[in-house]
Simulated scan of single mutants.
Amino acid sequence: MAEDLWYSADADYSDYMEDALLVNKGVLAEYNTILKFVRMIDLSQNNFFGEIPIEVTDLLELQSLNLSHNSFTGRIPGNIGAMSFLESIDFSRNRLSGEIPQSISKLTFLSVLNLSNNKLSGKIPSSTQLQSFSASSYTGNELCGPPLSNNCTVSVPTSGNQNRGEKEGNEDEVDWFYVSMALGFVVGFWSFIGPLFFNRRWRCIYFQFLNRQQDKLSIVVRKCY
């Protein structure tokens, strides 16, 4: 809580200098050009709307950020994990959407988190820090995963869909079974027919064999009649 806060400007300087006395956790601190060293921002219960300014993530010394009870929309800044000194985040009761940034799991000093009553969706990033908060920190969204009771469901393809997918994926592959059948037929055909074309003696033997078979067949037919 701020015990004393004032702003001063010296006419001899062209740049506007700001001074502030802040009490944080019982420690009195004085800041000059405070935007670089600001520790806490509380803009809760206003009528702010639009996306959270990405510039807020440049406040690398920030320890507490409270934007609750506003009408902020859009996503939580993706690089919020760069604010490594954050100890408290309260974005509750806004209209934030999308997934919780994975980088938020890097905030190892985070001891207070409230993202409830927004339009966030997807899986809560996995980290020891984020799973240590109660489910109330995430309620009122479409989130899943620990510490919430609803697990994130992953659609598993059925065997029919899986076989169909494999078949579709193999449409452009060569079916070697049919290739081997065709190749075997060609090789077998020419192994038998080829010598008849190029060897006269084999042709004579073959035709004599056919004549004998024809004579035998004629005898069998005559006996049947």
Rank of each mutant, 00 (worst) to 15 (best):
M1W: 15
E3Y: 13
D4Q: 14
W6Y: 10
Y7W: 12
S8E: 08
S8F: 04
A9L: 04
D10T: 09
S14M: 03
A20G: 07
V23M: 04
K25Q: 05
G26V: 06
G26I: 09
V27T: 09
L28E: 11
A29I: 15
E30F: 13
E30T: 12
Y31C: 01
N32Q: 12
T33F: 14
T33P: 01
L35C: 12
L35S: 01
K36M: 11
K36S: 12
F37C: 09
F37H: 07
M40K: 15
D42S: 11
Q45C: 08
N47Y: 07
N47W: 05
F48H: 06
F48L: 13
F49P: 03
G50V: 03
E51A: 09
E55G: 04
D58K: 12
L59I: 15
L60V: 15
L62D: 02
S64R: 10
N66C: 06
S68T: 04
H69N: 12
N70R: 07
N70P: 04
R75W: 03
I76C: 11
P77L: 08
G78S: 07
N79I: 09
I80G: 03
G81M: 03
M83D: 04
M83I: 07
S84M: 04
L86A: 03
E87R: 11
S88F: 00
D90P: 06
F91Q: 06
F91Y: 04
S97A: 03
S97F: 01
S97G: 01
I100D: 00
Q102L: 13
S105L: 00
S105Q: 05
S111L: 05
S111E: 11
V112F: 12
N114I: 06
L115K: 01
L115V: 02
K119Y: 04
K123S: 06
Q131H: 11
Q131V: 15
F133H: 01
F133T: 04
F133D: 03
S134D: 15
A135L: 11
A135N: 13
S136D: 07
S137G: 02
N141S: 04
L143F: 00
G145E: 05
P146M: 05
L148P: 06
S159C: 14
S159H: 10
G160V: 05
N163R: 14
R164F: 14
R164G: 05
K167L: 09
E173V: 03
W176L: 13
Y178T: 02
S180I: 08
S180R: 06
M181L: 15
F185C: 12
F185D: 07
V186I: 14
V187W: 01
W190N: 04
S191Q: 07
I193C: 10
P195D: 08
F197M: 10
F198L: 08
F198T: 10
N199L: 11
N199G: 04
R200G: 06
W202Y: 06
R203Y: 01
I205R: 05
F207H: 06
Q208P: 00
R212T: 06
Q214W: 14
I219R: 12
I219N: 10
K223F: 05
Y225R: 12
